[in-house]
Deep mutational scan, measured.
Amino acid sequence: RKEMTAACTPRRRIINLTSVLSLQEEINEQGHEVLREMLHNHSFVGCVNPQWALAQHQTKLYLLNTTKLSEELFYQILIYDFANFGVLRLSEPAPLFDLAMLALDSPESGWTEEDGPKEGLAEYIVEFLKKKAEMLADYFSLEIDEEGNLIGLPLLIDNYVPPLEGLPIFILRLATEVNWDEEKECFESLSKECAMFYSIRKQYISEESTLSGQQSEVPGSIPNSWKWTVEHIVYKALRSHILPPKHFTEDGNILQLANLPDLYKVFERC
Rank of each mutant, 00 (worst) to 15 (best):
L64D: 00
I27K: 14
S22L: 09
E37N: 11
A100I: 02
I254E: 09
Q30K: 05
D115Y: 15
P117T: 09
L23E: 15
I79F: 04
Q76M: 15
Q203E: 12
A100L: 02
K118R: 15
F82Q: 03
M101N: 15
L155N: 04
N41C: 07
Q76H: 14
K246I: 05
K246H: 12
R173M: 03
A237I: 03
R12N: 08
S189T: 09
K265C: 07
K184E: 07
E182D: 05
Q214N: 07
P95C: 04
M196R: 05
P168L: 00
P245I: 15
G116M: 15
K68D: 13
Y80S: 03
L136Y: 01
I222W: 12
L153K: 00
Y75K: 05
Y62D: 00
E134Y: 03
Y139M: 03
S19D: 13
I27E: 15
A103H: 04
R269V: 13
Y75V: 02
L156M: 10
L17V: 04
E177W: 15
R201M: 11
A83Y: 02
F140T: 06
E134R: 02
A7G: 13
V218E: 07
N224K: 09
K246L: 13
S221W: 11
F85S: 11
I242C: 04
H57S: 05
A175R: 01
L90T: 02
L121M: 03
K227M: 06
G152N: 08
S191G: 09
W111S: 15
E114A: 04
L64R: 00
L190D: 00
I222K: 05
G220S: 07
N49T: 06
R239T: 13
Y62A: 13
E231L: 01
T249W: 10
L39N: 08
L243S: 08
V45E: 07
M4S: 11
T18N: 08
T67D: 13
N41V: 10
N253A: 06
W52Y: 04
N179K: 03
G152H: 09
I27A: 13
P154G: 01
P93L: 02
W228C: 10
K130I: 14
E185K: 03
A55S: 10
E3A: 07
V48Q: 12
V87Y: 08
I254N: 06
D138P: 05
H57M: 04
P168A: 10
C194L: 13
L96T: 03
L211M: 05
S22M: 14
G110R: 01
H40E: 08
H232G: 14
W228D: 09
P261E: 07
H232I: 13
Y124N: 01
D105C: 07
I233C: 10
N28Q: 10
F85K: 05
T210I: 05
S240Q: 10
L211F: 07
D181F: 11
P168I: 00
R11S: 13
F128W: 02
C270S: 15
T67M: 06
G31H: 11
Q76W: 15
N224Y: 06
K130S: 15
V48I: 09
T18K: 05
F44N: 03
E123M: 14
K236G: 10
T18L: 14
Q76S: 13
F128E: 02
E72Y: 10
C8W: 12
N49P: 01
K132D: 02
P117W: 15
T59E: 05
T210A: 09
P50I: 06
L88K: 07
Y124F: 14
K184Q: 08
K236I: 13
E185M: 02
E183Y: 07
S216Q: 07
P163F: 03
E185P: 13
R12T: 12
S191T: 04
V20Y: 15
I77V: 06
F140C: 10
L172P: 00
C186T: 02
I222S: 09
F197I: 02
E33T: 10
R36N: 13
E114N: 05
R11C: 14
I205D: 07
E37V: 11
F128Y: 07
P162L: 00
Q56E: 04
E147K: 03
H247D: 05
S212L: 13
T5Q: 10
G86P: 14
Q215R: 08
G116K: 02
I169N: 12
N65E: 10
K246Y: 14
L54T: 06
T229N: 05
L142H: 01
F128M: 05
C186Y: 02
E71F: 03
K132E: 07
H247K: 07
E127P: 01
I125A: 15
P223W: 11
M4R: 06
F97D: 02
E268Q: 12
Q256C: 06
A94H: 03
I233P: 06
N49E: 05
I151L: 08
R36V: 12
E177H: 10
S19P: 03
I79Q: 14
M135N: 03
A103N: 00
V178N: 00
H32W: 10
G31C: 13
V87K: 05
A83G: 08
D251E: 04
N149T: 06
S240E: 08
F85M: 14
D262N: 10
V230Y: 08
E134K: 02
L39K: 05
I171S: 01
T5C: 14
D251V: 09
I242R: 14
I205R: 06
E29F: 14
I242T: 13
Q30T: 10
V48Y: 13
F267G: 03
H32I: 08
L35T: 04
Q51L: 13
W111G: 13
R269H: 10
E134W: 06
E92Y: 10
G110Y: 03
R239F: 14
E143H: 09
S43A: 09
M196Y: 12
E165M: 05
N224R: 07
L243T: 08
E114S: 05
N253E: 05
E33C: 11
